[in-house]
Design a protein around this nucleic acid. Sequence first.
DNA 1: GGGATTAGTTTTGTCACGCAACTTACGTCG
DNA 2: CGACGTAAGTTGCGTGACAAAACTAATCCC
Lengths: 396, 396
Amino acid sequence: MANLRQASLRHANLALVARTVLAADSPPSRADVAAATSLTRSTVSRLVDELVAGGILEEVESVVGGPGRPGRPATPLRASTGRFAALGLQVGVGHLAVRLVDLTGAVLAERLLTADLAGSRPGSTLRRLRTMAGRVLESAPLGCHVVGAGLALPGIVDVEAGRLLSAPNLGWEDVVPGVALEAVLGGLPLRLGNEADLAAHAYAHPAPGHDSQPQDFVYLSGEVGIGGAVVVDGEVMTGRHGWAGEIGHVCVDPDGPPCRCGSTGCLEQYAGRLAMLDAAGLDASTTPSELAARARDGDEKAQLATRSAARALGVALAGVVNVLDIPTVVLGGHLAQVCDLLTPEVEEILGRRVLSGRWVSPRVVIASDDPAPGATGAALLALDELVRDPAGVLGH
Amino acid sequence: MANLRQASLRHANLALVARTVLAADSPPSRADVAAATSLTRSTVSRLVDELVAGGILEEVESVVGGPGRPGRPATPLRASTGRFAALGLQVGVGHLAVRLVDLTGAVLAERLLTADLAGSRPGSTLRRLRTMAGRVLESAPLGCHVVGAGLALPGIVDVEAGRLLSAPNLGWEDVVPGVALEAVLGGLPLRLGNEADLAAHAYAHPAPGHDSQPQDFVYLSGEVGIGGAVVVDGEVMTGRHGWAGEIGHVCVDPDGPPCRCGSTGCLEQYAGRLAMLDAAGLDASTTPSELAARARDGDEKAQLATRSAARALGVALAGVVNVLDIPTVVLGGHLAQVCDLLTPEVEEILGRRVLSGRWVSPRVVIASDDPAPGATGAALLALDELVRDPAGVLGH
DNA sequence: GGGATTAGTTTTGTCACGCAACTTACGTCG
DNA sequence: CGACGTAAGTTGCGTGACAAAACTAATCCC
């Protein structure tokens, strides 16, 4: 409900120009940006100059063989490398991760640590994360402004309060990670987020301002249980309180096995990592790839486990697609590793159970195999604020 | 991705001022609007003058005893009555409806017709609707501009193409209602919409620019089957193709009874009107209120039917709430008539099955008993375009 | 080397808003 | 009953952001 004044106009067009440059596949010239935005060249020039002066964009020395076109050669523009960056942190059930990502989406520095954190003490775990974050920040290039920090957590988060309400797979309840980390952040605001939400953001936007296809999808993140997120038009749906996306607890069968959430027949009880391994008669430490290999080799129990998981995924996702009309499903985490075993049956069930399946067939695709997409997503989300309002870091 | 120019600024602020006046509970003065929008009085004055000249707003003759406050008395503003209106049409399974709604949300004229249209021929039904629309338009007040028309349909709609793809309960397939109605519309664009989507819009916005509480909810519309809509921040989620909200076909039990959609165990098979009457051993023509009365009087089969419906609703809605974090459910249509029988058990199941139920208890509320909320919603949606860009009807 | 072509800059004009002074229209109080 | 206070609404001026168009710059092509 905020009003608009002349300054808003400038803010909005600065953001538009910045986004246009970041979204381009190859560095565009001022003239290209003018054509893409339907602003005039003079206006674009002025805005670009401001963004370059502010260190958000930079001009590329087009050394290599130009296009050989008549006319004055263009000055290609791109996001500044290493000038602005954001810190992405993640506490997973099996790992800690810290990443420093810049405006081009490049990882300037990172640290990964594999560890079983189920049942760990929040205090000591967050201290380990703090140490890792300190190292990463030390190795940031000179003159690099860290503009934000985000922390991905596998649980239900109160974003406003910066509080982790509950992370059953970690065994954490009611934790405020900001206090343990604030020494290393130096006053930088820390934004918490659900791991699946942030991973989904990273999938939709592999770099700040850069949109990938598709921009509407349902994201499933398999770790111990199943996290999820719904992305509409490139934006992660957070819901009324920021707790949307709990697809792992959609009911597949009301008479199904009890879930630790207190309900029965949740998707997680069929397609969660532990549930699948259990159904296949394998130890909890077995990797999903091992399970997939056994299923392919003809192990009957492994095949049963994957088939049961596929059926549950099909039923749960059909409901989601019926309600949201988002016919693309992205599988990440352990689900990505067994994706090719699941996909045919899941797609078959979706085609049958989705009302609009007659006109558009739902598709299942696989996410990247990044072990910590949540950390990347947390950093990218912080950088997005910069792209959305570049005037904030310029001369105000 | 459109750029901003000075004109955009004016357009945006015109819309802001218009919305502010429409959203106010009592007619605000120019000074009130200035305070609410944080625009200056001079700017508001200019914009209001334009809107008054354009016939969108009007000054109220404050005849009755003013507040007796010192200072120059205010000139209260409100939406013009009867100057701009939109036509809302609806084809339901049991009725036809036509409404003319103005900017204040008042119904200027309407016509309702009860008829069993299941299996009707689209051509003759639409001709009847056309006649009704003609009568309604004839009775519009002098100087009333009809700025848009919308048609609510109980099925899957291709909004862009103006085509009804499938309405199983009517038995209609692949119909383009625009051609049958264009004679009466006189070039006015007709916008199709799903009945539940439009009813949900009317619930969220009882008048143009006026927001009711809540602005985030799941809407269930019970007719023969069950239609649904998801409203986030006052906006009906349409999904990738406009087919979102098919909650009636969320799977409650994969081993449940077959549904006409080709799937099994859909919510509609438990809580649809026909399904409930069938389970209660009643004739298809029985009213839901009659069913409710029997259940209250101790009829065991009727109680069984309502309990089964409540359980199915609980399971299906729990899934939706888990995915979307929208803890308010609005029941309309036949579900509204049996709402008080269903609510306790549905809320109990939601509290148990919704992951975030520990922090926020989901609530079930009842919609208005308007027989054709879709028609109202269709008209309101058309008027919303006017409110969103008032400059469109002024001096361009 | 001159012309064509394209990139980027400079200049001038327009328009919407903020600011502040002003006018209007009412109550209040001596 | 008339001066004063107060709040609503108007008027005139200044500012800033963008459009339009003329201009400069740098390259290719002949």
